[in-house]
Simulated assay, not measured.
Amino acid sequence: MTHKTIAILITASLLGGCATMERPANAIGSQYAPQQVEATGEGFRSCHATMTPADLLAGGQVASHMFASTPDLLASGDRVRLKVAGDEDSLSRTYVLAANGTITLDGRVTILLAGRSIVEAERAIASELVEAGLIRGLRNSVRLQLLELGGISVAVSGAVFEPGMIRVGERNPETRGVNLSNSDSGDSNANRSLTTTLRAAGGVRPDADLSAVYLVRGKQWTKIDLNGAIYGSAIEDIALTANDRVIVGSRACFQDDLVKPSQITAPGIRVYMSNLSRPASNNASSAINRDATNLPYGTRLSQAMVAANCVGGSAMNAARKVVLMSRNPISGQSVVIQRSVEKLVRQDDRDGRDPYLMPGDSLACYDSFAMNMRDVISLVGETASPYFLLKNLD
């Protein structure tokens, strides 16, 4: 076998690994956004209206303003101050609602206050004390003041990124200390609201039906329209209480308008990046740090490519490939999208091929064909040199 033949065989075998990478395969229906399809103009599933959940139909529907006009309802962990006429230190003191929503007066009278307004709780205490014979039924003999609204647990389900039991309204010790030292009566906890709860649940997904957000309280429920949070009009940001349920309907389609920071969406997302392409040999030299991977909600793949330093550089390595690994938020299926960096930068249909990034997405950059060829040629030289050296010595 001649030296030339050996060199050709070695080069051919190595060039096989230099070919353009195989395009990622995805399960049918896993691509959830129009920007993820390969060619613009391809058909995509249409949106549809949300049906009212079957388990709510048996309950009593009320108008949303009925919940919006309801005063703050007490929950476990809230603080109240009780004042009883003629009493100094036996019944009159500050109480914290227990885990079951009750307070115990004089060590023997237990009263359930959770789920009641401060006025309703005051009447309940007065009635229990009169029935127990501890006070006389005089008018205004019992006064109950709200000192502090604590955190509450709310069940969130439907088209949100992180459904489950969500804890909202917790306060740090410094804030609680200021509240307790303040002589004013009453409190406002803005974090015990519907919009804050949705943000705490990861924000609404791009498929959410904002005209069909359901709030369930006891045996009553209401349907709320939160489109104003996206389009800049007034909404009913209802104050919630413990054990409320929030259900966000889904239109089963991707809506670009919902992919931006707002009252009900995530202000930012965490993504994962890898850029090991030349001339960078590691992520540290690519300046991929915490600031680069924490991006505003609504960031597109092209913007993340710049954050990962995949765009620009030498002309030989300009034609890089970028791979986006995501997960369909509706079905939970994994989705892998491959794009040419230069085409995404230069072609006029870039908007139709530039996917939005979702929380937890990953992207990686690959070298261009020219850089792969350079490595192959270098490897051929390193592999063939010992053979030719030994041949010359022979």
Rank of each mutant, 00 (worst) to 15 (best):
residue 66 M to V: 15
residue 49 A to P: 00
residue 123 R to C: 05
residue 73 L to Y: 00
residue 94 T to W: 03
residue 64 S to L: 07
residue 98 A to M: 03
residue 94 T to L: 08
residue 49 A to C: 03
residue 121 A to G: 12
residue 39 A to F: 10
residue 126 A to R: 14
residue 44 F to D: 00
residue 59 G to Q: 13
residue 57 L to A: 13
residue 40 T to D: 10
residue 122 E to H: 08
residue 61 Q to T: 10
residue 93 R to Q: 15
residue 49 A to K: 12
residue 49 A to Q: 12
residue 108 R to S: 15
residue 76 S to T: 09
residue 113 L to P: 01
residue 42 E to G: 11
residue 38 E to K: 15
residue 81 R to M: 06
residue 73 L to W: 00
residue 103 I to V: 14
residue 51 M to S: 13
residue 107 G to W: 03
residue 53 P to E: 10
residue 87 D to K: 01
residue 79 R to W: 11
residue 39 A to V: 15
residue 121 A to H: 04
residue 119 V to Y: 10
residue 124 A to I: 05
residue 88 E to A: 10
residue 110 T to N: 08
residue 40 T to H: 08
residue 63 A to F: 07
residue 124 A to S: 15
residue 114 A to R: 05
residue 92 S to V: 03
residue 83 K to Y: 11
residue 50 T to E: 04
residue 43 G to V: 10
residue 63 A to C: 03
residue 91 L to F: 05
residue 35 Q to V: 03
residue 93 R to H: 09
residue 86 G to T: 04
residue 40 T to Q: 14
residue 111 I to V: 15
residue 66 M to I: 13
residue 109 V to H: 04
residue 99 A to Y: 05
residue 41 G to M: 11
residue 37 V to F: 14
residue 44 F to M: 15
residue 129 L to G: 01
residue 70 T to Y: 09
residue 84 V to Q: 00
residue 45 R to G: 08
residue 44 F to G: 06
residue 42 E to Q: 14
residue 72 D to V: 09
residue 101 G to R: 01
residue 49 A to Y: 07
residue 78 D to C: 05
residue 57 L to K: 15
residue 122 E to Y: 05
residue 113 L to I: 07
residue 57 L to V: 15
residue 53 P to Y: 08
residue 81 R to L: 05
residue 40 T to V: 15
residue 38 E to S: 14
residue 110 T to C: 06
residue 85 A to Y: 14
residue 89 D to E: 08
residue 94 T to M: 11
residue 117 S to H: 09
residue 114 A to S: 15
residue 71 P to L: 12
residue 48 H to R: 14
residue 72 D to R: 08
residue 105 L to S: 04
residue 120 E to Q: 15
residue 73 L to H: 02
residue 60 G to Y: 07
residue 45 R to V: 13
residue 80 V to F: 02
residue 114 A to P: 01
residue 123 R to L: 14
residue 113 L to G: 00
residue 47 C to E: 12
residue 110 T to G: 06
residue 114 A to D: 06
residue 91 L to G: 01
residue 44 F to W: 08
residue 52 T to K: 05
residue 127 S to I: 10
residue 55 D to E: 14
residue 64 S to Y: 07
residue 72 D to L: 03
residue 91 L to Y: 02
residue 74 L to Y: 04
residue 65 H to A: 07
residue 46 S to E: 15
residue 85 A to W: 14
residue 92 S to D: 03
residue 63 A to Q: 12
residue 105 L to Q: 04
residue 53 P to N: 10
residue 62 V to E: 05
residue 41 G to H: 12
residue 38 E to R: 12
residue 93 R to L: 01
residue 65 H to L: 06
residue 110 T to F: 07
residue 123 R to H: 12
residue 45 R to Q: 13
residue 100 N to H: 08
residue 93 R to E: 05
residue 43 G to F: 13
residue 98 A to Q: 09
residue 35 Q to Y: 11
residue 71 P to V: 13
residue 79 R to K: 13
residue 50 T to W: 01
residue 92 S to R: 01
residue 81 R to W: 03
residue 73 L to T: 09
residue 74 L to Q: 00
residue 124 A to R: 07
residue 75 A to G: 14
residue 125 I to V: 14
residue 87 D to C: 04
residue 103 I to A: 00
residue 101 G to P: 07
residue 75 A to F: 04
residue 122 E to M: 11
residue 41 G to R: 11
residue 85 A to K: 12
residue 35 Q to R: 11
residue 80 V to P: 00
residue 105 L to F: 02
residue 78 D to Y: 01
residue 95 Y to N: 03
residue 38 E to C: 05
residue 34 P to F: 04
residue 89 D to Y: 02
residue 93 R to M: 06
residue 108 R to A: 15
residue 94 T to P: 00
